[in-house]
Amino acid sequence: MNPQLIMDGLIAGAMIGLGAIGITLTYSILRFANFAHGEMISWGAYLALATSGLLGSLSGALLKPIGPFSFGWSLPLAVFAAVALTAALALFVDALLFGPLRKRRSAIIIMVMASFGASLALRSLLEFIFTSKPVYFSKALQIALPLGGGLRATPDQLLSLTIAALLVVAVHILLTHTAIGRSMRAVSENLQLAGVAGIDVRKVIRTVWVLGAGLACIAGVMAGLLVQIRPYMGFDLLLPLFAAAILGGIGSVPGAMLAGLIVGLAEALGVQLIGAEWRAAVAFMILVFVLLLRPQGLFGRAE
């Protein structure tokens, strides 16, 4: 078997994991499966692309590749702006759609349906603005470096993996060691009780959207850098995201990341064994097996 599939799987898995953290947080704290989360990935990537292009047109020096990487300083700078813009988009959708539904104490399933509608509208809006033609951050080709043991990876891939790992550690520390993290966990345990205990629930909800959208944006930029940018990129990731969030156990950040890597590796293996056209079915098989054997996931608690 080709050891390279491990590298492919890890990279796909890191993107799935970052996205799944957002899914698992909205699921455990806002209590609904957010079908619009994939759109945060696509919007994040397009926003970074647009900002990076704008910066590049202001100063050509920003486009000069940094060291071994395929992109110039315009991209890292654009990522900061794109994270902020994607978070703003998530807060905007919440203020317009989910907030009023929450206030009306709508059933969970109405929220799910609203997210389904938002997903379609946001995705088609991207298709309207940018058309469905795939675009790239950089057209430059990168030489993969041998890592030993038959593994090869490009500098971009290694950087993405490192950033994903750092982000997961950071989010985990945020949730376990800071005041807002404790508030978030309290709200996920019991919203009413947390409110009575003086926790600012609205602030917690804002934090969830910002965190989820920010991570989704970075996952989108990674996908754009390593694969390509399309309006459907986030929607196509949705099933792997849900599979990873449920496999990891709803509410568990390390679980989501680990499960993301498992889903990514399983997809890479599936591509190798059955063929690339069946990739999307791998996540579904994982989902079915988790729901059959351990519906609470790896790190979740049984209800």
Partner: peptide, 20 residues
Amino acid sequence: ARAAALRIVLIGVGLCAILL
């Protein structure tokens, strides 16, 4: 093709509006 995408946006927004 772009106009068709816009049509889908309108249907999505319309569904959310009816829910609200």
